[in-house]
């Protein structure tokens, strides 16, 4: 894994790291990927992937309208709110 690839992953995951931290994480990831590589030993041709933790599927509820009150609790931990909105720095310059 090279620094270009690590930078791309950090970009996708929205994480800023120092160059020292980047070096460390690259080494760790290489070791982990080397470890998980052993899955390739198993023949999985034609095996249906197991996509979740349960066999139940498509649980649907009635499509009903419910009144939901404004929940101030949901916003009380945010550092910056105004008039019931989250306030963030500029997106476009």
């Amino acid at each position: 894994m090279d620094s270009k690839e690590i930078n791309h992953l950090l970009e996708l995951a929205r994480i800023e790291l120092s160059s020292q931290e980047q070096e460390k994480i690259t080494l760790d990831l290489e070791k982990i990927l080397d470890y998980v590589k052993q899955l390739q030993e198993l023949d999985t041709t034609g095996v249906e992937p197991m996509t979740g933790g349960t066999s139940i599927q498509n649980i649907c509820r009635e499509d009903e309208v419910h009144e939901q009150k404004e929940n101030d609790e949901l916003k009380k931990s945010a550092f910056n709110t105004e008039k019931g909105y989250f306030k963030v720095p500029p997106i476009f310059e």
């Binding site: 690590i6 995951a13 929205r14 994480i15 800023e16 790291l17 931290e21 994480i25 990831l29 982990i32």
Partner: peptide, 17 residues
Amino acid sequence: RGKGFGPEVRRRIILGT
């Protein structure tokens, strides 16, 4: 996300990505 997550959490997010 860089400062708020510790090394193990960052490692797993990057691995998952």
